[in-house]
């Protein structure tokens, strides 16, 4: 299977779309746009997984796709949006490093992922190799996003996008048991819940979601250029 055949092309395009949306996430400054991009990533991920299920003829993947669609594209974004609206968090997301350097680092991470995955998967099919490269890039970009965002919502979105990468990898690698996926999903949901709670507490206690504010209370100095509000 290679380029020019519809199954391969479509899988390639959808997995690439997930990665592209990771970059869109990295580029966004505003909270609502960030959540919208996350929802789009969830939807494309669901389509990618469903397509994989059809190509590899694994009906279990349809379930995963449905779960991804419901959770990632509908439920979590709606929940986040609700949270944002309830607390009036319409402000821009502060980034720890600029958008430009963040994007450059992102491209570097993708190159790194490719350089790691390609030699490690010698002998596997082109689809698997490329799928793994895409998935690993999405995961790395999610981690990068968690590092570069000061805003708690931004970090939650980074975590969820990282999990999207995990699901993409799981869908690409034939035979990964559903249990593992469910376990990761459950883990992430738990983490998201914790993060949401954290957000709430922060909001209540410090009237802001900038984690830099916490440094004061740990006896550290504020990040340069920022004082307490």
């Amino acid at each position: 299977m290679g380029f020019g055949q519809l199954p391969f092309d479509m899988a390639h395009l959808l997995a690439g779309g997930v990665l592209l949306l990771s970059f869109v996430l990295l580029y966004q400054r505003r909270v609502t746009a960030l959540i919208g991009a996350l929802a789009a990533q969830g939807a494309v991920l669901a389509m990618a997984v469903a397509w994989q299920g059809w190509v590899l003829d694994v009906p279990a993947l349809y379930v995963t796709a449905l779960a991804a669609l419901l959770a990632k594209a509908v439920a979590i974004p709606l929940g986040l949006r609700l949270l944002v609206r309830r607390f009036g968090l319409r402000r821009a997301v502060e980034t720890a490093i600029g958008i430009g350097p963040g994007m450059i680092m992102g491209v570097g991470l993708v190159a790194l992922a490719i350089l790691v995955v390609l030699p490690a998967t010698q002998g596997a099919g082109a689809l698997v190799r490329e799928g793994l490269a895409f998935a690993m890039s999405v995961m790395l970009l999610g981690m990068l996003m968690m590092i570069t965002r000061r805003h708690a919502i931004g970090q939650v979105v980074g975590l969820l996008s990282l999990e999207n990468g995990l699901v993409l990898a799981a869908a690409g690698a034939r035979g990964l048991p559903l249990v593992v996926e469910l376990a990761t999903a459950a883990l992430v949901v738990a983490l998201a819940a914790v993060a949401g709670f954290f957000t709430l507490r922060l909001r209540d206690d410090f009237a802001g979601l900038d984690l830099g504010l916490l440094h004061h209370h740990r006896g550290e100095s504020a990040p340069p250029g920022e004082g307490p509000p």
Binding site: G2, F23, L118
Partner: peptide
């Protein structure tokens, strides 16, 4: 604007990198 166009530049670079990847796979 430089951010906007810089993002475009990086996307194009990414596109080229994926092409290298697929020519390497083929």
């Amino acid at each position: 604007v430089p951010e906007f166009l810089g993002a475009a530049l990086l996307l194009a670079l990414l596109g080229a990198v994926f092409l290298f990847l697929s020519t390497g796979l083929a």
